[in-house]
């Protein structure tokens, strides 16, 4: 017994080290499983408040560029309003299939783009109706999908995250693919699994596919920069230059699809045969 106690006293630093490392690994793996580990995230109150404070300063410094972006958005919206009548007359647009999509305004207050798993923090949470798994867009294009939410803030799984995979398609031909990121460049993402029959041209634009309950169809993503066949030779890997500058973000909108809950509920009733 005496020896055992002596052993523990002699090795106390090593034991403490082991306990702390195990605790750290526990936190790491907990945060890795999607949508869990709620209490240790940037969505909590303390870090959220600090982030909004620091972003207050950086917002001020960015006012000029953000104003320009807003002006561009305004002009686009005016254009859209002008076009609405003709759209109604010609054919039902794809987004009307969803029975109107709500855009909840939010603001990016913290932005990562240099890691392999990047997250954004936005100001705007459950109080405004923001929940997990909602799409987030900026005036220029998509940003990501909401991950964890608190009453006033939410974290967003950025498209610059190796865990992100978003359905997207070519504007011209409706060929679908999956949007991923290879961590090399914060302005270039990859569209994989595009059929080799798809007609590709450098400069073609890519939009969201609308095959999910997160993004409606037709939200701009980026333009084709280059493309090549993958190893199997059956699918293209397309390099896409994002319309968004992911290193300079400000205003954002969270997309609330009114029928999302209903569709998910319906899909869950399908037996999983895999």
């Amino acid at each position: 017994m005496q020896q055992l106690i002596n052993f523990f006293i002699r090795k106390r630093h090593f034991l403490l080290f082991c306990v702390l490392v195990l605790l750290g690994l526990f936190f790491t793996f907990q945060s890795r499983s999607y949508h869990s580990g709620k209490y240790l995230s940037a969505a909590n109150g303390i870090s959220g408040t600090l982030f909004s404070w620091t972003s207050g300063i950086s917002d001020y410094l960015n006012l000029k560029t953000q104003n320009e972006l807003l002006q561009i958005e305004n002009s686009q919206l005016r254009e859209a309003v002008g076009n609405v009548n003709s759209i109604f007359q010609s054919q039902a647009s794809q987004s009307t299939l969803w029975g109107g999509v709500d855009y909840i305004p939010a603001r990016v207050i913290n932005n990562n783009y240099s890691r392999t798993k990047n997250y954004l923090t936005i100001k705007g949470g459950e109080k405004l109706g923001i929940q997990t798994s909602m799409g987030v867009v900026s005036p220029n294009g998509i940003l990501g999908i909401t991950d964890k939410t608190s009453s006033g803030y939410a974290t967003v799984l950025s498209i610059l995250n190796t865990q992100s995979s978003i359905n997207a398609k070519l504007t011209k031909s409706n060929h679908f693919g999956t949007l991923q990121w290879d961590t090399r460049d914060p302005n270039i993402v990859q569209l994989v699994d595009v059929q080799r029959l798809a007609p590709l041209a450098i400069g073609d634009s890519i939009v969201t596919g609308g095959r999910s309950t997160i993004f409606p169809a037709g939200i701009p993503i980026g333009a084709i920069e280059s493309y090549e066949l993958d190893q199997s030779g059956n699918y293209y890997v397309v390099q896409i230059k994002l319309f968004n500058d992911m290193t300079n973000l400000g205003p954002a909108y969270v997309i609330k699809m009114p029928d999302a809950a209903e569709i998910q509920e319906l899909e869950e009733t399908i037996p999983d045969e895999e």
Partner: peptide, 30 residues
């Protein structure tokens, strides 16, 4: 012991701000 515990807490603090779970904590303690 104080160094080990405080560096763990320091790493965890950094983790909370950068959404990384506990990787900074483990690295700092080691």
């Amino acid at each position: 012991s104080v160094l080990l515990i405080s560096s763990f807490l320091l790493g965890l603090f950094v983790d909370i701000f950068s959404n990384t779970g506990g990787v900074h904590a483990v690295a700092s303690v080691t």
